[in-house]
Structures are given as C-alpha cells and as structure tokens.
C-alpha cells in the first residue's frame, strides 16, 4: 500500500524575471515500510521535492503544483492546521544542519521536553523523562546526554539526538535530507545501521535524500534518480544500479569511484554541464550530455516506461539491460 503518492508534482522558484522549475512534473509512489533513496547531483531537485511536499518553502518565492497524497489526503491543498499535525508527528524531516537547532543555553532535556510539551501539554515530568530516555536509547545514546549542553556533544551525537527528536511522536515517514553527509564514514554507517534497526521496530517508511549512491546501495531498498528536476529512473537498487535503463543512471554509477572494482582507469565524468533551468527547454534535460541522444530526445519529453510495477524510467532510447559496464 502506498503511504505517500506524489502525482505530477512541480515546484518552481520564482525570481524577479525568471522561474526555475526545480521539480518538474514528478510522479512517485512510496510504499509503506519501504526505504527509498533519492539521489541526484546539485540542482537535481532532490531536496526541493520533499520541501515542496511538506510545504516548507517560502510561499512568496516558490510555487508548488500537483498532488502529494499522504494516506489519501493531499498535503498540497490541505489547510495549514491539518498540515501542521501531519508534519512532525506523521512525517518528520532531519536536515544536514539539524544539529544546529539545539539552543546553546539549554540542556538537551529542557529543549526536548519543551517540544514534547507543545504536542502533549498535559504530560507529567516523570513521563517525559522516561519517554526521552527511551528515545535516546533508540539511537544508542546514554541518558546522561539529557543533562548535557549541545556544545558538549560531538557532531555524531548531536545528529543522533536530532534523529531521536524526529522520532518523538512515532512518525510514519522519516525523511533524512543529507542528514549524515557531514559526518565521517564510520559514524555515518553507525547511525544508518541504527536507523535500520529502529525502522524494523517502529515500521517506519524512510526517504533518504543524498548525493552519495553508495549509501543508497547499502541502506535502501529502492532508488529514485533525479536530474534537472525530473525523475529519471526509479526501482529496486538491485535493478537500477546494476542494470540501469536510463543512460544518466549508468553514467552516474560509472563516475562513482570505488575500489572493489575499476579502482583505477575507468572512472568517467559526464561531459558538459547541466542545462540552465531558468531557460525553457524541450525534450529530455539530459539530451545535451547523453551519448544516446537522438533528435527525438531534444524535442519530445520522455514519458514513463515501466519494466515492472516497481521499476520505471523516462527515456526514449533506454539501455537494453546490460551491466553498468556497457560502454559509453
């Protein structure tokens, strides 16, 4: 059953004399209990998508069109009061800079219990403390952390605390927007493994937004590849990352240096630069950099093609299921 159904969603940033289609008619289904990794480079719209759905963007400088159905209720047209209930308690987001939210003059306990009281005004002190201790335990933090100030905690601990905070009201969907990017690999893997465990326990649906495909390959079931505001390919990681249909997915995988294979010699870069989204264009946004582009790619917008019900791509001239090694 899909828990979040994004239908034909567009988000534009409005400038004085221009308009940037940061998210361009994206349709995407997120199933309950699944973990979806959204990858893309800068300017791909991967972060804007979730910000637009949760309406966290400034309404004067941006415009969100389309539908995003959370259990059948459209978040885009919902009134603010209802939305506030969904945000945070049903869908919560952890940002890369989430660790900066903690007030430097308050202990973690004061800060967290204040938030708790906003949503549960009648809660007793004992109850809150127990709840907070449990939360911290979930992310492997000792309860002593409650009595500490933010500056006494390391970056990893702070990010853990903010993840714990986002789980406070047992949300259904947890969005991690580059939440572990700033951390070192070892800490990042520790935290992500902990989240995997929490997910099992709380039946969470997780959306992980990142530029790092190895994180998605290791910690997500599904992957959605974004480029220039459009969805390029979506499916299970075993399918998309191993037998990509879209040339962009292939190129992105191949430009990722790894040392288990191809550690030297074959890392490629994609020639050219991303099209300027301030200007209108026709066809596929990747056409100017793609080796398989045809005339059609420059004129007609590629529509969704499905491999199976979970795997679809948007390309006129898809790869025929070769490995990522298929030559460029």
């Amino acid at each position: 059953m899909s828990i979040l159904e994004i239908k034909d969603l567009s988000v534009s940033y409005l400038g004085d004399d221009y308009k940037v289609r940061a998210v361009d008619h994206v349709s995407l289904n997120i199933e309950e209990g699944e973990s979806l990794g959204i990858v893309g480079e800068s300017g791909s719209g991967k972060s804007t998508l979730m910000l637009g759905i949760l309406r966290l963007l400034n309404e004067r400088t941006s415009k969100t069109e389309g539908e995003a159905l959370f259990r059948g209720n459209d978040l885009i047209s919902m009134n603010k009061k209802e939305l506030a209930k969904v945000r945070w308690s049903e869908i919560s987001v952890v940002f890369q800079k989430a660790m900066n939210v903690f007030s430097p003059v308050h202990t973690i306990e004061t800060f967290l219990s204040d938030i708790y009281k906003v949503h549960r005004p009648n809660a007793k002190r004992q109850e809150i403390r127990k709840e907070l201790t449990d939360l911290l335990a979930m992310v492997n933090l000792p309860k002593q952390v409650l009595r500490m100030y933010p500056h006494e905690l390391s970056g990893g601990m702070l990010q853990r605390t903010s993840i714990a905070m986002s789980l406070m009201f047992r949300p259904k969907i947890l969005v991690l927007d580059e939440a572990t990017t700033a951390l070192d690999v070892i800490t990042q893997n520790q935290i992500l493994s902990e989240i995997l465990e929490i997910e099992e326990k709380l039946h969470l649906t997780r959306v992980l937004i990142t530029h790092d495909m190895s994180v998605v390959a290791n910690f997500c079931k599904k992957i959605a590849v974004f480029y220039a505001g459009r969805l390029m390919e979506v499916g299970y990681v075993e399918d998309v990352l191993v037998h990509p249909r879209h040339p962009y997915t292939r190129d992105l995988v191949k430009s990722y240096p790894t040392f288990s294979e191809d550690g030297t010699g074959t890392v490629i870069s994609i020639p050219g630069t991303m099209i300027d989204l301030k200007k209108a264009y026709t066809g596929c946004p990747y056409a100017n950099r793609c080796d398989r582009a045809t005339e059609q790619c420059r004129t007609d917008r590629p529509m969704e093609d499905q491999m199976d019900e979970h795997w679809s791509y948007y390309c006129h001239n898809p790869l025929q299921g070769g490995e990522t090694d298929e030559s460029r």
Binding site: S154, M157, V185, I186, S214, T258, S260, E261
Partner: peptide, 27 residues
C-alpha cells in the same frame, strides 16, 4: 581497516561489511 571497510560501493551486490569501532574520534 575500519576506514576502508566502511567505504561503500555503488553496486548493491557488494554490501559492505564494516569493521565496527566504538564512538567517534576524540577531539
């Protein structure tokens, strides 16, 4: 060893087997 084993691969067929180390680097 810890550092290298924690480096993931974009190929989901090679899941990493990270060597677990405790905590974070001290300041």
């Amino acid at each position: 060893k810890a550092l290298i084993s924690n480096c993931g691969d974009a190929d989901p067929r090679h899941k990493m087997e990270p060597l677990k180390v405790k905590g974070e680097p001290p300041s």
